[in-house]
Design a protein around this nucleic acid. Structure first.
Lengths: 231, 231
DNA sequence: CGAAGTTTTGACATCGTTCAAACAACGTGG
DNA sequence: CCACGTTGTTTGAACGATGTCAAAACTTCG
């Protein structure tokens, strides 16, 4: 049985560029491919604007000692600005083979400002997640975000997503540890809220339930009774 | 003994506008005063840009149930953009009597984009704080940030800051509870790192030590020996 | 003085981390 | 093809930092 690892697969399915943001301006779009683990434009002299065509980028921030915080996950159609950080190094890392359009912010002021607004709004939301949510809410919100950014074909009417993030990436994004992420995902799986056999392809079996968890309704204790869960 | 509460005092000391950002553009600067607790421009039809002249603003985000996350604290000289949020209501609240310049982003594109960059950079930093730091690190970083934004006259050579935030505000900013904030501050105080008699005026007695705590060097257990602390 | 709000403190519970180990998937080289 | 190393995932047990609950102490103000 041939199983293609989604994280490593080169352009797993035909490219369909989603134009969630404004179309590119005058100068010719410069396409670039990045391999998983590679960092983007470390040596860029001028600020750059990247728009993801296919794949997945992570906006990372390192914290002196090894600690890492991923501040955003960027999927196809979304753009991200490379800002030269004053203190506390930061980087944009590819989590899979990724294709990006490299743009000049100066030549695309509208896209640049739209990207800034979008990043700001998402980041503020994420700050609320990091500061005020428990593990289950964090993971639920994370999954819903990723399901919107990395959708696959429905499976039996249920949304499916490609999980380009490892448990470790998820942990660094959601402010948790790998263990807690793994435990929470398996808890969801046991409760029938999500499903997965390969760690990188997740089905949202009960998206409504996931949304409830995301806004704070706790997942009822399910170790008490093995039945009475599914409708 | 006449004690003026710093949080309630109307313009406690002579205004000295710090122009950390670009000077205002063409159209006449429109000044506005806000009382503590008041929200800013809830009914604004168009996006607005506010530059703090004097006082303190908090960028808040509400979370369905009562939970609140303050994503940024804005002091004199800094600007903040009012963005109409899609989901999850947000607001800009004054934490003391505050004077702001009300500006039109369209008329001040440079200031607007500079503000966006600044907010983004601070927020990303704050996300790392929320997601990856323990209580002591959070409080230390918070204090250092506030000391830079709300400096008072040195006291015996030590930096002093006006703490416009209540313990509850600090908790909502740093992703903690009031109790933990209070405990941590008193822990710092007992260790001689900071000092305060009134809850709103804090002296950084040992700023270098505070910086070390801020980057992760833990505050040594000090309940073991009451002496041997200071050099 | 008494009321209301804020801060501090204590006792206790708990969620998430830490530490450790087993397991699974994958690539490599024999 | 299999043994092996590496990396990622899962699981268990124990601990501890932080949250929760409750109440006292303090500040401000009527």
């Amino acid at each position: 049985m041939l199983h293609v690892n989604a994280r490593q697969a080169m352009l797993p399915h035909p490219v369909l560029v989603k134009t969630g943001l404004k179309p590119v301006g005058a100068e010719k779009p410069f396409l670039q491919f990045i391999a998983p683990g590679d960092e983007l434009g470390v040596s860029a002299t001028s600020p750059r604007l990247y728009r993801v065509v296919e794949g997945c980028l992570a906006d990372c921030r390192l914290l002196g000692d090894g600690r890492r915080q991923i501040t955003d996950i960027v999927g196809p159609g979304r753009a991200i600005a490379q800002q030269p950080e004053r203190d506390g190094s930061c980087a944009i890392k590819a989590l899979t083979f990724t294709e990006v359009e490299v743009l000049d912010p100066a030549a695309n002021p509208a896209l640049a400002s739209e990207t800034a607004i979008d990043s700001l709004s998402r980041l503020a939301r994420h700050a609320a997640l990091l500061g005020r949510m428990n593990a289950a809410e964090k993971v639920a919100n994370g999954l819903l975000d990723l399901a919107a950014q990395f959708p696959r074909k429905l499976r039996q009417g249920h949304p499916v997503l490609t999980l380009y993030l490892t448990r470790s990436d998820l942990a660094d994004w959601l402010g948790l540890t790998v263990e807690t992420v793994s435990r929470t995902l398996n808890q969801f799986k046991r409760a029938g809220v999500i499903d997965y056999s390969h760690a990188e392809i997740v089905t949202l079996s009960r998206p409504e339930r996931l949304k409830e968890i995301a806004i704070g309704r706790p997942l009822a204790k399910l170790n008490s009774k093995p039945k009475g869960e599914h409708p």
